[in-house]
């Protein structure tokens, strides 16, 4: 369980987040949705302690994010931001191996090696494990990053727009991997999504953010309605019945 209590943050004068009070239940996928600049990513980065808050408190599984040591938090929560550019040339396996850093500080044990192998297999990167990241396609690289945070074996996994820059096929593949990670590996996954239909199809809970506040929180069935989506996105949205559940149509 992740609890946000009266969380506030203001920066660049006009942008303000909060006050946010939110409880994200344990298990499954929770999708953060909302218009651009609503504060979804900012909320996620604050939960993942990459960004400090001005006021309020965030607790993950009972640990206060602000006061718990970063190295201890690294075993409870992992976060992946959307832009990951680095010049370091690493193989997939080396990158995933750094997910073990909170446990091994780099000296990989046999248990670490096994966990790395499992994370790589889980994201179907087995054939590519000794390739360098700069030799991979965008979709493969994104999977490698996700493998790294899964390899961290934290109960809570935060992903900031993991579908960014992925085509249809890779987006669907990624959401299926995340769904499996939630069910088979018992992870609580919180993910910022741009496409409401991905949230409707794969998420267990949807949290709608607008103007720095949480305006709706519920199951896809309660969020995927004409009224709620039109209000959240400030755009005429119609929800129709698709072959696999509700579909939002906005064009």
């Amino acid at each position: 369980m992740i609890t946000l209590r009266d969380v506030r943050k203001s920066y660049e004068d006009e942008v303000t987040i909060g006050p946010v009070d939110l409880q994200i239940p344990t298990g499954g996928i929770t999708a953060l949705v909302g218009p651009n600049g609503a504060g979804k990513s900012t909320l996620l980065t604050m939960i993942g302690r990459l960004l400090g808050m001005d006021d309020g408190a965030i607790e993950i599984a009972g640990y206060d994010v602000a006061s718990t040591a970063s190295k201890d938090l690294a075993r409870i929560v992992s976060i992946l931001r959307q832009e990951n550019h680095f010049i370091t040339r690493l193989t997939v396996r080396q990158l995933v191996g750094f997910g073990r850093f909170p446990y091994s500080k780099g000296r990989l044990t046999q248990h670490c090696e096994d966990t790395i192998s499992k994370a790589i297999d889980f994201l179907e990167l087995t054939e590519l494990e000794h390739r360098y990241l700069d030799q991979l396609s965008g979709g493969q690289r994104q999977r490698a990053y996700v493998a790294m945070v899964l390899c961290q074996e934290t109960d809570h996994v935060l992903l900031d727009e993991p579908l960014n820059n992925l085509d249809m096929k890779h987006s669907v593949q990624m959401m299926r991997h995340l769904k499996r990670a939630a069910t088979e590996l018992d992870r609580t996954i919180i993910v910022v999504l741009h496409d409401i239909n991905f949230a409707g199809r794969y998420a267990d809970h949807i949290c709608a953010v607008k103007d720095g506040r949480v305006v709706e929180f519920g199951t896809p069935a309660t969020i995927m309605t004409d009224e709620v989506l039109t209000r959240v996105f400030d755009t005429e949205v119609q929800v129709i019945d698709g072959p696999n559940g509700a579909l939002a149509v906005y064009y």
Binding site: S70, K71, D72, A74, S78, F86, G99, F101, G106
Partner: peptide, 15 residues
């Protein structure tokens, strides 16, 4: 090496 992956990834793994 972890620091070389950037401040965010480094902080994520508790560095």
């Amino acid at each position: 090496t972890v620091a070389g992956l950037g401040e965010e990834i480094a902080t994520n793994v508790g560095l």
